[in-house]
Design a protein around this nucleic acid. Structure first.
Length: 216
DNA sequence: ATCCCGAGGG
DNA sequence: CCCTCTGGAT
């Protein structure tokens, strides 16, 4: 098992990100696991702001899986329309509510395997729920983190699974959830897809992406 | 016009 | 692997 960088180096890089984004870990702030699950499903391909705009009234209307399970689909679609992909998300939410009732006694499951089996919940959403609702460490590798991977020494086409495993080995378990947020945040704010804002980046020293022009 | 803090399906 | 599904931000 060869790791791309030393643990010391990885921690140093993470610490710089922590200084840069002191509030990155507060992005998702919901009361119950159920609410967090719903909010996270809604947040696919959409920013937190747009989700937050919808959730307050949404949770009044659908406070629990029971209410979701028997929601009127067209109404629910209207309620979440501004988060994008609303047709998929609405049907998935209803199916989710039904499945939570039928198989989990109305509770949000606490294992990755069970969470991923919920309609509309993939690896990313499942890990976010595990970390934020139950404090169970999980590493989230999304498109942003994959892009950052080069900074941490992985090759361009490394698989997400390998990156995830390595990150878990490199970083202390108690920092996994926060580190994941920091990495995602950095990928979105500075190390952006087409044009990274390297001049403001605290990690630009030795970074292979510095000076990279749009690759297409 | 173009890009998203993804998931599901072919 | 590829494609589709959406509105909103920029």
């Amino acid at each position: 098992m060869k790791l791309p960088v030393s643990q010391k180096k990885a921690l140093a890089l993470l610490y710089r990100l922590y200084r840069l984004y002191p509030h990155a870990h507060c992005a998702l702030n919901y009361r119950t696991p159920f609410q967090l699950l719903v909010a996270t499903i809604l947040s696919a391909q959409c920013t937190d702001k747009r989700v937050n705009k919808v959730t307050e009234s949404l949770f009044e209307k659908y406070p629990d899986p029971q209410a979701l399970a028997c929601a009127d689909l067209p109404t629910l679609e209207l309620d979440i329309r501004s988060t994008g992909f609303y047709r998929n998300k609405a049907t998935n939410l209803v199916l989710c509510g039904q499945r939570l009732l039928e198989r989990h006694g109305g509770q949000v499951p606490t294992s990755l395997e069970e969470l991923v089996r919920l309609p509309g919940v993939g690896r990313k959403t499942a890990n976010v729920v595990l970390g934020n609702a139950f404090g169970i460490p999980g590493m989230v590798v999304d498109t942003h983190v994959k892009r950052l991977a080069r900074r941490f020494g992985w090759t361009v086409n490394e698989t997400p699974e390998k990156i995830e495993q390595d990150l878990c080995l490199l970083l202390p378990r108690e920092h996994w959830v926060q580190s994941a947020h920091l990495l995602i945040w950095h990928g979105r704010e500075l190390c952006k897809a087409p044009v990274p804002l390297c001049s403001c980046c605290p990690l630009q020293e030795d970074c292979p992406r510095v000076g990279v022009v749009r690759a297409r």
